[in-house]
Amino acid sequence: MKKLRMLTLLAAASAFVVAISSTAFAGKDLKTVTFATDATWPPMEMVDANKNIVGFEIDLMNEIAKAAGFTPVYKNTAWDGIFAGLAAGRYDAVLSSVTITDERKKQFDFSDPYISVGQILVVSKSAGNVKVLADLKGKKVGAQIGTTGAFETKKVAGVELKTYDEVGLAFEDMAAGRISGVVCDEPTAAHYALQRQEYKAKFKIVGKSFTSESYGIAVQKGNKELVALLNKGIKAVKAKKIDEKLKKKWLR
């Protein structure tokens, strides 16, 4: 009797494992494309009050998918490790405000760029007269781990970089006075510094963005089919100027 119960348990457990793994590796026919996105990067991608993933990039991808003829599925994934997951094939692509850089191009293939942004510095109002990042020598500056903001900050000698798992934690730490500045993509900086009521009184944006970067969708190296599909959609959306409309909706 006991043996039988053990066997049943074992069978149930293995069925469970099979069920999980089959859902994880389903959908390789490009009718549905799974995108990993770190939904902590407002207003590009974030989780709204109804637990839906929303944002500029989500709206844009829905339009691209409509034009190219596939169904997008979004998977909220932590940024740190999002590329490791792509390399391991846990999803088809990364749609998460990914700047196209030479280092990333060595590891992954990218779609055509769909928007250009830049890095910008946000400081607390008590920081005094700060014009560029180099003015914060000897002070701590925060950025999200593995982002171009972190890489740019590291380049400036004398500025101590602190890396956070989420950019929101960096802003919260600046509100607590532990760091003097935060470097991130301009739209996100604007969201935190100008739209969040609790931060509006404390933070200010320094000048204009100091880099010029293009976002692309990252896919596994050699996945030419998917790149072609995405590029087709991006082209169609740009031709209809849908991206401009969405910029007005989501960005300042």
């Binding site: 490791a84 390399a87 280092e103 781990i145 593995g146 972190a150 890489f151 890396t163």
Partner: peptide, 10 residues
């Protein structure tokens, strides 16, 4: 993690 995030050598 900082090293891995730049080199992708997780």
């Amino acid at each position: 993690r900082e090293y891995a995030s730049e080199s992708f050598a997780y």
